[in-house]
């Protein structure tokens, strides 16, 4: 096994693969499903190697991937900001304000569907989308291939990473996806508690977990180790007049109007503001949203109902969510190929 792949592993004692926690049992019985799987899956034609990850890291941080040569993937997916940007919604090419929040790329390796509206299925599919989008990085892809092909350092790196494939849109996507597969949540206090360290989280966080999996019904959507069902729900977030049909654009089914993909809660303390349009600055505001059963009732998910939580229960939920945040992954900025 490659060293990179080994870095993705927890200890064997943590190896659990249950991701989709539909029929949840009691908190005690369901505990194992909240531990991270041992390996992040990768497609057969793009298994992780150190050369691929190194190339992907360079591409990810390289502003020359944009039409302006000024915006890199990391401009919006900033590792110092939870692999997001700290803004309500992203800013794209020409300082154009985008319509949706920049989602973290943390643990996207485990997601079978990508983007807020699920319009991409794999990381390879996803990687080229923002690069080629006029509003985002505004870099026509054929021109990008030509641009990178003129850089000696990249020619060498592509040759090592994909010896028989050359520099192409496909290998650019594969390399970026490979790097993204190494952006994995680290061990959090919550994980240590689950592995038996009773002191790893506070009593408030423990109560919060009980509320999360019980009265508050959070796990109906935020299920499994990654705290997402990879599903789509309209949770009634105010949109300030900027209507966004969300998943409905991909699947014109009535319940999907205004529905968006459930985001992970891993490292949630690092990824404010919250919701698909950055509507809330704090986790306390998020809990209040759910407690009142959302704001916009049209097409609201039937899972969203007023919760009537006490002040203590709300505080416990926030404490629990904070316990899902580990030490941020340390990423060395690459010297970009010349």
């Amino acid at each position: 096994m490659h060293a990179i792949a080994k870095r993705l592993l927890f200890s064997s004692a943590m190896a659990t693969t249950v991701i989709f926690a539909m029929g949840a049992a009691s908190p005690e019985a369901s505990r194992d499903r909240y531990l991270r799987p041992a390996e992040a899956p990768a497609p057969a034609d793009n298994q992780l190697t150190p050369d691929r990850v190194q190339l992907g890291r360079a591409l990810f941080f390289d502003p020359r991937l944009s039409g302006s040569n000024w915006i890199s993937c990391a401009t919006c997916h900033n590792p110092g900001l939870g692999w997001s940007d700290g803004l309500p919604t992203g800013w794209g090419h020409g300082m154009k304000k985008l319509g949706r929040a920049t989602p973290t790329i943390l643990n996207t390796a485990f997601n079978p569907i990508q983007m807020w509206d699920g319009r991409k299925s794999t990381l390879e599919d996803q990687a080229l989308g923002p690069i080629g989008a006029d509003a985002e990085m505004n870099q026509p892809l054929p021109e990008l291939v030509a641009k990178l092909s003129k850089i000696d350092g990249y020619r060498s790196m592509f040759k090592k990473a994909y010896p028989s494939e050359g520099i192409s849109e496909v290998t650019i996507a594969k390399a970026i996806a490979s790097f993204e597969r190494t952006v994995i949540s680290t061990e959090s206090p919550f994980d240590r508690w689950r592995m038996g360290d009773a002191q790893a989280i506070s009593e408030s966080a423990k109560r919060g977990f009980e509320t999360f999996t019980g009265k508050a019904n959070c796990q109906a959507c935020h299920s499994g180790f990654n705290f997402t069902d990879n599903g789509f729900h309209n949770i009634g977030v105010k949109n300030d007049g900027a209507e966004d049909v969300g998943r409905f654009a991909q699947r014109p089914v009535a319940s999907l109007k205004g529905a968006f993909k459930t985001p992970t809660l891993r490292d949630i303390a690092l990824t404010a503001p919250y919701m698909r349009n950055g509507a809330y600055r704090t986790l306390e505001e998020v809990v209040e949203h759910y407690d009142r059963g959302g704001d916009l009732k049209e097409n609201l998910s039937p899972e969203i109902k007023p919760l009537h939580l006490s002040t203590q229960e709300k505080a416990d939920l926030v404490e629990f969510m904070k316990s899902l945040t580990g030490k941020p992954m340390q990423v060395a900025l690459p010297q970009l190929p010349q």
Binding site: M22, G23, A24, A220, P252, V253, S255, S301, E303
Partner: peptide, 20 residues
């Protein structure tokens, strides 16, 4: 299950949406 589902089909011969 213990959560809602919404079965649908966009097939040409039988499009349907059962709702949640």
């Amino acid at each position: 299950d213990k959560v809602f589902h919404n079965v649908f089909s966009l097939s040409k011969i039988l499009p349907f949406d059962l709702g949640a």
